[in-house]
């Protein structure tokens, strides 16, 4: 139990997916302008990460590894994630329309989000068992949420700030991201992770 807690915290803070591993930068920069959409996107990502891990871990362990098919990992995982996203969208639309309305629009973007594919491959590379893999995915998703929410706050301030002309727009956003990332640098070495 203690161990699982460490895995969640580790993935969330110490090895934050966005700010220290650079996974999922596109949505981090693209969808962080408004707090509401930042939260929606992160929740959708967390949800898909958990689902994807629940499906890809058994595939790797019970199908690919015993048959010496490890080299099909990338192609199988990306197809599974893509179909899963489609499936989730259809199910949500049919049975939980309100949730579909708030999260559905982010789903197609997630197929090519490297954070989702990244977490499924990392779980295998790290040799985690099923429960630890799920914990790691949860931590990664929550870490994504924290980074998005923090950054959305920073960007709302940035909107009204007086920035030198050349740095306006993308450069100032990236430099702001550098400062947010620097604050997460402080978690390095925490829990001996």
């Amino acid at each position: 139990m203690n161990n699982l807690f460490l895995i969640v915290l580790g993935a969330m803070l110490v090895n934050n997916f966005v700010l220290s591993q650079f996974l999922g930068i596109c949505p981090f920069l693209g969808v962080s302008k408004k707090l509401g959409s930042a939260v929606g996107m992160s929740l959708a990502v967390t949800f898909v990460m958990l689902m994807a891990t629940a499906v890809t871990w058994p595939i790797q362990t019970f199908v690919l590894d015993p048959n010496d098919l490890g080299y099909l990992q990338t192609i199988v995982f990306i197809l599974v994630i893509a179909s899963l996203v489609q499936l989730v969208e259809i199910v949500l639309k049919r049975f939980v329309p309100p949730l579909h309305k708030s999260l559905g629009i982010y789903l197609p973007l997630i197929t090519t989000n490297c954070a989702v594919l990244g977490v499924t491959i990392l779980n295998i590379d790290e040799g985690y068992d099923f429960v630890s893999s799920m914990a790691n995915s949860l931590g990664a998703g929550l870490g994504f949420l924290i980074a998005m929410v923090m950054f959305a706050g920073v960007r709302e301030r940035l909107e009204t700030a007086d920035i030198p002309e050349g740095l306006r727009g993308i450069p100032s956003t990236l430099i702001a991201a550098a400062l947010v990332s620097l604050s997460f640098f402080g978690f390095q070495g925490l829990f001996g992770l």
Partner: peptide, 22 residues
């Protein structure tokens, strides 16, 4: 060391895009 750290990545990238625009 901060240049090699993740924060340095964002920072250098931001400056490069600024230079490119200029």
């Amino acid at each position: 060391a901060v240049f090699a750290a993740p924060a340095g990545g964002f920072f250098v990238f931001g400056l490069l895009i600024w230079a490119t625009n200029k």
